[in-house]
Every structure is written in C-alpha cells, then in structure tokens.
Design a protein around this nucleic acid. Structure first.
Length: 266
DNA sequence: GCGACAG
DNA sequence: ATCTTGTCGC
C-alpha cells in the first residue's frame, strides 16, 4: 500500500462528491490486519515496557489523535486545535499540535471533511512513524464504512482505529448496558449501512466499569480504520486503557488539545 | 412526511 | 464539540 493524498478530505466538495469520495475510501480501505508493526496476538507490547522489549526490536509507536475547538458566534471563524501524542511502551515520545481554521460545519457522516484537514496538518508535523493511530470518532462504523479513522488511515497509510464514545450507526448483537470490564459486543451492519446486513463493523468495548451496581459506565465503540481487523482493534484499545475509560494515547491527546486551547483563552 | 446520526 | 453547578458514590 501507499499513502493516498489524492483522497484527502476537501471541504469545498459538494455533499454528493463527499459521499462519493467516502465510497472510494471504503473501497480501498483494508479492514483486516495487514503489515502491522506489532504482533496482534501479543497486544501487551503496545503498552507494557517488558513485553515491548521482549521481542528485541523497537517497541511499536502508538499515536492518539484528538481535537479541541475555539468556536465563535457565527460558526465562520471556528478553529480546531488538533493534538497528536505518540507513545512507545506507554511512554510519551513526541507530541505536536496545530491550530487550523474550520471550513464547514459538523454534519453527521461527514465529520472527516470538517476535521480531517486539520488532523493531517498536525500529523505532518510528527517526526515519528505511527505503527498504530487511534482516532476520536468512528472507523468502519459509518454509513459508508468510511469514518474519520478510516479516511485518515487510507490517506496517510498507517494502521488506524476508530474510538467513539457514542454509536453513529449499526446494531449491537446484544445488550450493551452494564457490561463487565473487558467485555465486547459485536456491532453489525443494518439497513442504514452500505454493507451486507449482518456485516461485522466493530465492537462495543467495555474498557472500564464500576465494581458495585447502581451506576455504570458506557462502552466505547471501536472499529477498524485501516489495515487493522476488528478483533485487533478491540484488543489494542483494551490493552491501552489503564486507569481511564479512554485508551491512554487518546486521553493524552485530549488533555494536550485542552492545554493548547487554554493558551488562546482566559 | 418520518426518522435522526461520530465530533 | 462547547457552555456550566451541583451532586452522587467510591
């Protein structure tokens, strides 16, 4: 495979052109493990220093991507702060951020056309090569199987995973309320998705859960972005969650994006 | 017309 | 996403 800058999100396209581009993205995307820089059977190498060193070579580089926003009255001068944090065996090795003007409003299903450009701008400042990139949003769990994680993975050509806090589309194969920590429930294609009904799109993943009843934490919705299969995606996210609901790289990117925003306000 | 969806 | 106080439970 190779990077596909020609498929980068262009905010000036018409809605129909955006949707057509997403169909093309989904067409070239690989929703299975391919050329991974780590062993999917040993996800511990992603966060555990001991397991990471065991193999002999360099520990895989895992990056988390997230954004914060500077919103205005009329949403014509909104800016996005994109943050990327790179980790290796659980340690931060690099972080970059970029402030970018936003061209279009948020439209469900077309998120990557609003936020994708800003994210690519930040990624271009990164000096390390990601072995895995985690995004705040959907991957294959998308109407046209081309969520922001898939779009970014295909354009930059690195393994990517979508980590969403709510379900965009698709149907869980079972109950997703009050799951136990480590549980996963398959999300399959339904009539709203451009894929054969029943196609496995991803998993509801319970990364954290309270011990006692009463209150419960909602699961994350994890899906393949590009070059990662659904099981590996779910396993990687669980491995990368230590003490919080979000996988560490994404949590760190979220905090960094908030920090940078703080320098523009208050 | 009804339904309705990441960030 | 962002704007915000209090409040529940460990």
């Amino acid at each position: 495979m190779a990077p596909r800058p020609d498929l980068a999100p262009d905010p000036s396209l018409s809605r129909a052109e955006m949707e057509a581009l997403q169909e093309e993205i989904a067409d070239v995307a690989v929703f299975a493990d391919r050329d991974l820089g780590f062993d999917p059977a040993e996800p511990a190498a992603l966060s555990n220093p001991l397991a990471a060193t065991a193999g002999g070579g360099d520990p895989p580089t895992v990056v988390g991507v997230d954004q914060s926003f500077l919103l205005t009255d009329d949403d014509r001068e909104d800016r996005a702060i994109s943050a990327v944090v790179a980790t290796r065996a659980g340690e931060v090795v690099e972080r970059v951020s970029e402030v970018t003007p936003l061209e279009i409003p948020y439209i469900p299903g077309l998120l990557s056309f609003r936020e994708g450009g800003p994210i690519l701008a930040a990624l271009s400042e990164l000096s390390v090569e990601p072995d895995l990139a985690l995004f705040d949003g959907s991957g294959r769990i998308h109407f046209r199987q081309a969520g922001i994680a898939t779009h970014m993975g295909v354009v930059a050509d690195f393994p990517s995973v979508g980590v969403a806090k709510s379900l965009l589309c698709g149907t869980p194969r079972g109950e997703t309320e009050g799951l136990a920590e480590g549980d996963r429930v398959a999300i399959e294609a339904d009539g709203d998705v451009d894929a054969p009904k029943g196609t496995l799109l991803g998993y509801a993943v319970q990364s954290r859960q309270y011990d006692s009843p009463g209150r419960h934490i909602n699961p994350l919705y994890v899906s393949s972005g590009h070059r990662v299969g659904p099981e590996t995606a779910a396993g990687a996210v669980l491995e990368l969650c230590s003490d919080y609901k979000l996988p560490e790289p994404v949590r760190l990117a979220d905090a960094y994006a908030e920090d940078v925003k703080g320098e523009y306000v208050e």
